[in-house]
């Protein structure tokens, strides 16, 4: 799916070098999906498994071209890893709005998906981060293995490869439901 594997297929010899002919969608989507930098959003134990272990040399997220950045303004991907409290939900939303388009969100672990196995009856925990920001991929687990996170990232890349510039961009900035402000 990466550019390197597919590039020879599109290369055509011309005098003085070679040219590649492809669709604009494919070029755009490759650029979008090949080096997603993610914003560090470790909120609970998922951060240890998903962000620290997955980013470590043993599992090595870097081979996908995926690096963590400290600032949301440099990021394309937000991996929400952990329990989102109501107080934190406003910050999640603020940081999401600070990311430049195109931007994607992975909800990692049970807590970020729907409040989790421990906090389902808590007064202070948001029942799923999709109540404040739109989520592209859900990675279940408590916490998920780094391999599960990779599977989610690969699924997200597949999703990006099916996007088209012809279609009007979805209105992603406004979430469907917003319980944190209510």
């Amino acid at each position: 799916m990466g550019v390197i594997e597919k590039a020879p297929v599109y290369l055509e010899k011309v005098p003085g070098g070679s040219i590649a002919v492809t669709t604009l969608d494919w070029a755009f989507n490759s650029a979008k999906s090949s080096s997603m930098w993610y914003v560090l959003f470790g909120l609970a134990c998922c951060a240890i498994e998903g962000l620290m272990a997955a980013g470590s040399p043993r599992f090595d997220l870097d081979r996908f071209g995926i690096f963590h950045r400290g600032s949301p303004r440099q990021c394309d991907l937000m991996i929400v890893a952990g329990t989102v409290t109501l107080k934190m939900a406003e910050r999640v939303k603020t940081l999401y709005h600070q990311m430049p388009e195109p931007k994607y969100v992975i909800a990692m672990g049970g807590c970020a998906i729907n409040g989790g196995p421990f906090y389902y009856d808590s007064y202070s925990v948001l029942k799923g981060v999709d109540k404040v920001i739109p989520v592209d991929v859900y990675v279940p687990g408590c916490p998920p293995r780094p391999e599960a996170l990779y599977y989610g990232i690969i699924k997200l890349r597949e999703k990006i490869m099916h996007e088209s510039i012809k279609k009007a961009p979805e209105e992603k900035s406004e979430p469907l439901r917003d319980k944190a402000e209510a």
Binding site: D121, S122, Y123, S124
Partner: peptide, 20 residues
């Protein structure tokens, strides 16, 4: 808790809609 929070959650008689 957030600044505008109503009530004090660790009181025994505290109720909240999320506490199912």
């Amino acid at each position: 808790m957030p600044d505008g929070w109503e009530g004090h959650p660790l009181r025994k008689d505290y109720v909240h809609e999320n506490m199912v």
